[in-house]
Design a protein around this nucleic acid. Structure first.
Length: 545
RNA sequence: GGCCUGUUGGUGAAGUGGUUAACACGGUACCCUCUCAAGGUAUUAUUCACGGGUUCAAGUCCCGUACAGGCUACCA
């Protein structure tokens, strides 16, 4: 029997040939080192840190090799797809400034980029496989397959459609024709020629050399709805998109022999595989893969709301992707993570644990090194979405706010007060009258002589305060004030003879600090006073007279 | 059941046969300081899941056990 007739019987409407596809999607003209990578999520909802990390890796590799980064939507399982799934994914990727060269919206020369729109391609390859006798139609029903499975379990055989269990393997042309005329449902299966007892060896970019039993199962290439399951779609797509490195979840590793058999059957050159360990999360002392449903704190939205800088998240990803990144970055603080040479072989072979504490640490360091203007811009962007009241204030007092954010910033060891944009307000709110007047709860817990508060404030304002003093002068005056009121101006001396004094200069400074900020913790008091100016200081002091 | 993979401190981890097991986060103590944040110094695994073996020498190689994860679908 000529298999070409069978191919035509099964796919009468497919007129293109595999050669046509090769011409339509030619090899990319890139230099040898350039890698074509892709992120291929299912449109099942918003991203979480796990798939954000999974997309970071191919993006970084593509960019660093001057290659191509593709977003492809794997929606072949229509039961799980949600309506605006593509937009949600694209929005999150764009929010993180991923550089995407080809995607479903933007398009590209190797599209379509949505699997359900690539049916013709899959059918063309499928028809080819039938014509060379590497695929065949199977009319087994669900019941047939269940019975088969039960029998295999009873006999303790391996489960699957293979060997003599593959009943439809050798149906004649006429038998097939009869089934089709009956309107029987069918799937297309691979005609495997593998031997389970033989091993195949392949090299994974992350895990190294792996040895697995060959595939001998006639797996499904095209489902009865005409859409391929993952494996076949992956081969067709990654071949005709000319992907050179397939990054995907580690769980696919045991089906590599099957995938390689398809690649070979099609006559395609397989890509390099990099199987990535999923990001884990710790939950009640158990470690498990991040789950969209169970881990709201892993959702990308959670980090948006908190205003964790996207750069900090990416620095964190870089840190867990290659452990030698962190040391490099410490030495090259002025450079971008893009300048670091990432490699798959440096990736962890056991799943990394998502560590929020570390993210916060990275974020604090990152924010402390940012220019005040940048902090201002980003904080404003964040506030416009999540705190409109604060956004108004930021807009009203732009230059002033930048001055406030600049306190102890452009120095060798800048402050690290906040780890995200949502924390800024709680660090500087008292610098704005609108917010200060709303909430007057003073914390005098550490003040020694509460009766003297008014005295200290009055004395300071009347006899020591001068708006134009520089920092040294200001501090000397603080010392004088302390001396005059019976507090030690030298802390060391106070520690030696605590009984001789009411307290020390820090007690005096703190009275002023609390009066002006309500808190006994603040950045440099001199700068705060300077930025507030005489009128506002007077007003805030006057509450205590 | 079968087949893979992994298991190093409170945490993330480096380590591919050879002196006292990097580094970072976190913790603790002290120092500095007008408070805080930072910073500085010190400290934080006699030991690499467990049991055997190979070797002059093992976290590193081999075997077994335990635990964890994955695959074994017309899910990805």
């Amino acid at each position: 029997m000529d298999k070409k007739d069978l191919a035509n019987l099964l796919y009468p409407n497919i007129t293109k040939t595999i050669e046509d596809l090769e011409k339509m999607y030619p090899e990319r003209k890139l230099n040898d080192k350039a890698m074509v990578c892709r992120f291929a999520p299912s449109p099942t909802g918003r991203m979480h840190m796990g798939n954000l990390y999974a997309s970071f890796i191919p993006e970084v590799i593509a960019k660093q090799t001057n290659g191509v980064f593709i977003l492809r939507i794997e929606d072949t399982d229509n039961k799980r797809a949600i309506e605006n799934g593509i937009e949600l994914i694209l929005n999150d990727l764009e929010h993180y400034n991923y550089i995407i060269n080809e995607d479903p919206i933007k398009g590209g020369a190797y599209g379509p980029y949505i699997q359900t729109e690539r049916k013709e391609i899959y059918h063309t390859v499928a028809k080819y496989l039938v014509s060379i006798d590497r695929a065949y139609p199977c009319f087994c029903s669900e019941d047939d397959l269940n019975n088969m499975r039960e029998e295999q379990e009873k006999r303790k055989d391996r489960i699957g459609y293979y060997g003599h269990y593959a009943k439809c393997r050798n149906l004649s042309y006429d038998e097939v024709k009869k089934h089709l005329e009956n309107g029987d449902k069918w799937v297309l299966r691979l005609k495997s020629n593998g031997d389970f007892n033989k091993k195949i060896i392949f090299k994974d970019l992350v895990k190294g050399t792996i040895e697995l039993p060959s595939n001998d199962i006639d797996q499904v290439l095209i489902k009865s709805d005409g859409i391929p399951p993952y494996a076949f779609a992956h081969v067709c797509d990654d071949h005709f998109m000319r992907v050179t490195i397939v990054t995907r979840d580690d769980s696919y590793i045991s089906s590599v022999p099957y995938h390689l058999e398809i690649w070979n059957a099609c006559g395609f050159k397989p890509p390099k595989y990099a199987h990535l360990l999923p990001l884990n999360i710790k939950d009640n002392n158990t470690i498990r893969k991040i789950s969209k449903r169970k881990d709201p704190t892993a959702a990308v939205a959670f980090y948006h709301e908190r205003g964790i800088p996207v750069e900090a998240i990416k620095l964190y990803f870089a840190t867990i992707m290659n452990s030698n990144f962190e040391g490099w970055y410490l030495q090259n603080q002025d450079k971008s993570y893009r300048d670091f040479e990432f490699s798959f072989s440096k990736m962890s072979k056991s799943g990394p644990l998502f560590d929020l504490e570390k993210v916060i640490n990275i974020s604090k360091n990152y924010l402390s090194k940012l220019k005040a203007e940048e902090v201002y811009d980003n904080a404003l962007t964040w506030s416009l979405e999540y705190d409109k009241e604060f956004a108004k204030i930021l807009q009203k007092y732009k230059d002033y706010t930048i001055d406030v954010l600049n306190i102890e910033r452009n120095v060798k060891k800048p402050r690290k007060d906040f780890s995200c944009y949502s924390e800024i307000k709680s660090c500087i709110w008292y610098m704005y009258d609108e917010l200060f007047d709303q909430q007057l709860q003073y914390n005098f817990d550490n003040i020694k002589y509460k009766k003297e508060i008014a005295t200290i404030l009055k004395e300071y304002l009347e006899n020591y305060y001068n708006e134009n003093d520089d920092k040294d002068t200001w501090f000397n005056k603080m010392k004088q004030l302390a001396d005059k009121l019976g507090y030690a101006s030298d802390i060391r001396e106070y520690k030696e003879n605590p009984t001789l004094y009411k307290g020390n200069i820090s007690d005096v400074a703190n009275v002023i600090r609390v009066a002006v900020t309500t808190s006994n913790k603040s950045p440099d008091l001199y700068m705060i006073l300077k930025l507030l100016g005489r009128d506002r200081i007077e007003k805030r002091f006057s509450i205590f007279y």
